[in-house]
Every structure is written in C-alpha cells, then in structure tokens.
C-alpha cells in the first residue's frame, strides 16, 4: 500500500471550467493485475500538469483511459468526464476529438506515408469538410513551427521533428486537453530544448507523463505523483520537488 502524503489537494479546488474529471477509476488487466486502484483527479481549463511516477505506476494505463481506449466497463461509482461530458460508448468519437493523445514513440503515431496525410487523419475522421481539414493542417503545422514540412515523407524526419509532427497530428483536432506520454524521451538536448519551448508556447490544457524531472520543474506548476495505481500526491511542483521523503519513496529524483 503506497504512502499518501499530505500535499495541498487540488481536487478540492474550485475552478471555472473543469476539462477533466475522474472519480474513483479502477482497472485490472485480464490476468488480474491491478493497474489503477481508485484514481481521482481534476484538471481545470489552462492547467499544465505533470504526471510522474516509477515505471509500472499506471501512468500509461491512466492515459489510455482518458479517451476510452482502455476501460469502458460501466462501473456505476466511477466518473470520467471530459468537458462535463460522460465517457460512454456513444460519446466516444466526440471525447476522442477533445482529448489529444500523443504517444511516446512517434513512429507509432505517424503511420501515414506523408506528414500532410498524418496531420489530416484526425480532422478527416472527425468528418470535417475538405477545406476545413486543409486549414486545420496548416494551423497545426504552424503551431509546431513545421509548416514547410507539409509534403515531407514521415520516414525522412529526425526524432525531434517526428515528435513535433506527432503533436501537430492531435492539435489539428483542436483538442480541449493535450496529453503527452514521455515527450522528451529519446531526444537529443537540442531537440529537447525545442520541444520544451514549444510546449511552453502552446495554450492548451496539458497533462504530461514523464520521467524528465528537469522538464517538470521548468514547465509545470502542478504535479501529480502516481505509484502502484494510485495518486499519492497532487500539488504544486515546487512543494513536491522539495519533499525529499516523497520523492525517495516513489523512486523519483530532484532535478
């Protein structure tokens, strides 16, 4: 049973416009392993939140619940809402447009031969008209400073470029919340710096799962610590990074 630490709890805060509301989320894998053990959290409009914790803490499993890739067994005590909309089978397409999920490996995220096709995939599958799709692709590529890459082939890109295009592929869906899994993994220092600057510029609400504590310190005012399928701390990043006992207990290091 993980230790819970008394850090100022953001869940009790009032905010205007809850983007993400999770109450008492449980999940076990088919083999019986418990991955999520009663997760509750809340994200407000404009929040930039880091999600940290050791491997196997359940971060990726949680992320895959946020747009309904995992879960969906209607447990009555569980609430999972995006922009106030309950995640149900009928709402799934709308929720998926609102939750922009960027996977860790850009080679999995960029599955089309060209950059254009990949960035257009989301808007096209939302059923938008062609002109709107093209406009969205332009805006999204502009947002990640990759406009000139529109006609490039995905396999010609460097790791950092792939990462930025991967972000563009979900920005083109105009998501209410942007969720990134390990965005800085595998990037060289320069590409990492470019990415950090990009994340700082983006106005979207953000939940970022990462092991990169320097990135957490630099970008995110709020941090959620997970371990063994639970939220063990949820508070201001400064406070959490100053709590060495907490960090050590969950295998984290102060940057």
């Amino acid at each position: 049973m993980p230790v819970t630490h008394a850090i100022k709890n953001f869940q009790t805060f009032e905010c205007d416009g809850e983007v993400l509301t999770i109450k008492d989320l449980h999940f076990s894998y088919p083999d019986g392993r418990v991955a999520l053990d009663g997760i509750s959290l809340k994200l407000c409009n404009g929040d930039k939140v880091a999600l940290v914790g050791p491997n196997g803490a359940g971060k990726s499993t949680l992320i895959l619940h946020l747009n309904g890739i995992l879960g969906g067994r209607g447990d009555p005590s569980t609430t999972l809402k995006v922009n106030g909309m309950e995640l149900t089978r009928e709402n799934l397409p709308i929720i998926r447009a609102m939750v922009g999920l960027v996977f860790q490996n850009p080679d999995d995220q960029l599955f089309s031969p060209t950059v254009f096709e990949d960035v257009a995939f989301g808007p096209l599958h939302m059923g938008l008209p062609e002109d709107e799709v093209r406009a969205r692709v332009d805006v999204a590529l502009e947002a990640v400073r990759m406009s000139s890459y529109k006609d490039r082939l995905s396999h010609h890109l460097s790791a950092g470029e792939k990462k930025r295009i991967a972000i563009a592929t979900v920005l083109s869906m105009n998501p209410s919340i942007l969720i990134l899994d390990e965005p800085s993994a595998g990037l060289d220092p320069r590409a990492r710096r470019t990415l950090i600057n990009l994340l700082r510029e983006l106005p979207n609400t953000m939940l970022v799962s990462t092991h990169d504590m320097a990135l957490v310190k630099e970008l995110f005012p709020r941090t959620i610590v997970m371990d063994e399928g639970r939220v063990v701390a949820d508070g201001s990043t400064m406070e959490i990074l100053d709590n060495e006992k907490l960090l050590t207990a969950h295998g984290l290091e102060k940057p």
């Binding site: 747009n67 890739i69 397409p93 995939f121 799709v133 592929t169 979900v170 869906m173």
Partner: peptide, 15 residues
C-alpha cells in the same frame, strides 16, 4: 491505439 485516438472507427478516409 494511435489511430483510435484520432477518430478511426474501421473506415479510412483520405484526401
């Protein structure tokens, strides 16, 4: 999973 996240539901659309 990446396709599902971007609205894929069994039918592919291309421009």
């Amino acid at each position: 999973n990446a396709m599902l996240s971007r609205g894929y539901s069994g039918h592919l659309y291309t421009l």
